[in-house]
Design a protein around this nucleic acid. Sequence first.
DNA 1: GCATAATGTCAACACATGTTCACTTTGCCA
DNA 2: TGGCAAAGTGAACATGTGTTGACATTATGC
Lengths: 207, 207
Amino acid sequence: MTARRAGRGETTRKALMDAALRQVARGRSFDALSLRKLTQSVGIVPTAFYRHFESMEALGLALVDESLRTLRRMMREAREQPVPHEQVIRSSVTTYVHYLQANRLHFHFIMRERFGGVATLRQGIHNGIQLFVSELATDMGRFPVLDRWSAGDLRMIAGLIVAAVTEATDLILNAPEDDADAEAEIINTTTRQLRLIVLAVPQWRSS
Amino acid sequence: MTARRAGRGETTRKALMDAALRQVARGRSFDALSLRKLTQSVGIVPTAFYRHFESMEALGLALVDESLRTLRRMMREAREQPVPHEQVIRSSVTTYVHYLQANRLHFHFIMRERFGGVATLRQGIHNGIQLFVSELATDMGRFPVLDRWSAGDLRMIAGLIVAAVTEATDLILNAPEDDADAEAEIINTTTRQLRLIVLAVPQWRSS
DNA sequence: GCATAATGTCAACACATGTTCACTTTGCCA
DNA sequence: TGGCAAAGTGAACATGTGTTGACATTATGC
């Protein structure tokens, strides 16, 4: 039983991860981070890095893991929340954006490294998102009309929704952090996009 | 009139740009490229780089420009092409994917640096895409039913379409280059997504 | 409280990076 | 054809990089 110790080591490990996240959120891509600057910003000597991670890539993978975890947590909480009868879409979008604001660093990391320069990170994030799409698809399959849809059609529509939300995420992250007007407009546009999609559902005939 | 010479210089300038594009397509993010490796892969000495670009960032901006230009070229050609009466959506998607395959390097660059680590490149690409969305919106405003839509609604739906196409682009670029089956499936999914969107159009009531 | 493993430090390495300056070569235009 | 600007070269620089090994300092479980 390798009971993980939770001494100061655990905290500087976290500090390293946070430092990396902050650097990424500041604009740099993970690919271009330097081990030395990272340790410096944490206040330890470069060589101490290896006490916590085997390599930079390992750090990156840990960050992918952590970030995807907050994504899953969001979905779980959303599932446990009772579904509001009115304004389902609008309130979902709003909730999402709040969650996004509360976890900017993780979302920023995911967005940047999703197409970033490190193949293994890309792969990990890609898989995570695909899983996310799948879960969304099966969730949607429980709704009144959609319960007659094929699995493929459900994935198709889930993918479309995720694409819309991804675009919104991009816009939010690139807007100034406290611009309420911009945020409101993005929420508005995304809400209308999702409403449009829902409007199409009853019309759909699988070919 | 500063008539640009087209000597060997012009060609190694292009060679530098191509080398950078290849490196990016290979996986590295632009801000992790090294000036030295670049010049080495072109066969010139590092210092000669400055004969063609003031800095790496200048190279990047030139690449943004070039890549966005192929995007605009695509749209222009699409506009000049007569609209097929049947299977409009499917044939559009197919055409797009072919164009994408024929210009993988440029699309790869756009996709990677759209969220990449260099702010100015991000900004440039973002603006380019927004312009793209606007043009698509006004184009769509010429269609039978959509000609009654507000500009805001048109932008909304155009954004949704672009989001779907962007997702498809990502999938295509990350699939092996000659996997016809995967390509066919992506085309299929995207086509259905766009069809779904079109189905919603007659139902839409602007609030 | 002591032994022990985990964290952290220090010095040093071999190498890669961007950029400088003065120089040579190339190719075009008058 | 001679001149001149453009393109390419070479040596050298100051810095930054990842990684090594041997050593010091913690903290924690027994």
